[in-house]
Simulated scan of single mutants.
Amino acid sequence: MRWGSRLLFLAGSLAVAIFLVWLWQLAADHRLVNPVFLPGPDRAWKALMTGFSQGDLGAKLLATIERMFWGWLIASLAGAGLGAIIGSSPTLRAYLAPTLEFLRPLPASATIPVAIAIFGLSDGMVLVVIAFGAMWPVLLATIHGFSAVEPRLYEVMRALGFSRAKVIWKVALPSASPDILAGMRLGLTVALILSIVCEMIAGRNGLGNWILLSARSFRAPDLYAGVILLGALGYATSAAISVFEQRLLVWRSRAR
């Protein structure tokens, strides 16, 4: 029944996607929107294949993936590390709460001019912006996960002679891991968005620059090909981290 429900869900999702593509093709064929601005999915797919076979779309895709991955990895390590330290200490949470609340709503894109002034139009600037924006979901999720651990567990473990580091590793981290992984998944989406924004603003080689130049040149099929590729990349990365999360948290399903 479980596999049957999954197959039914996948079939329904595929049917909805096919229906939307059909509507898109119908609108393009009947020229409900100027073809200069809305080519059909057939033209967008042809542009996508041409970009891979005859152009450098593959290299641009790899450049975007590389920036997204390294920025997300830095953000995940920094966010999980800082979140563990802050979340396991009520004193630190009390002192740092105003600062975190001040920085948390700050849009990461607003830091781009500052990053450009400090690092210039470089890949280092892009990594700093991506890491800063993607760190917050991981940081806040980790703080929440560690702060939600029963305080008596800390007291019992310390009474048994365990060090603070061992308490965090043995008790707090497994308990907070679902929150941390949820924050990492959200951070991966933020990393992809910021990669595209930085490539557009800083003119770095990647999908963002491809989409921007296509729009400026009125190459609508290439533009939509880039957007389709972005959607596929976002879906693939989300599915990959979902599988990783299920494998890592297999103990939860066994505990139930």
Rank of each mutant, 00 (worst) to 15 (best):
T111L: 15
A220E: 04
F37A: 10
N34H: 11
L153V: 04
P151A: 04
A84D: 01
L38P: 03
W70P: 04
G183V: 08
I112C: 05
F218S: 12
S195F: 02
M135F: 08
F102Q: 02
H30L: 13
R67H: 14
W22D: 09
W72L: 11
Y224M: 13
P107C: 00
L62V: 11
M157G: 06
F132P: 04
G231W: 02
W22V: 06
R152A: 13
A44V: 03
L212Q: 14
M157R: 03
L106I: 11
T189V: 15
L106V: 12
L140A: 07
A240F: 12
P221M: 10
M135K: 08
L38C: 06
E245N: 02
P151N: 03
G231Q: 07
G40F: 08
D123E: 14
A172P: 05
A27G: 00
M135E: 06
H30M: 11
G51D: 07
E101Q: 13
A182S: 14
L48C: 08
I74P: 01
A117R: 08
W251A: 06
A134N: 00
A165F: 13
L26M: 12
L8C: 02
H144P: 02
M157P: 00
A47R: 05
R93M: 07
R247T: 04
S175P: 03
R164W: 10
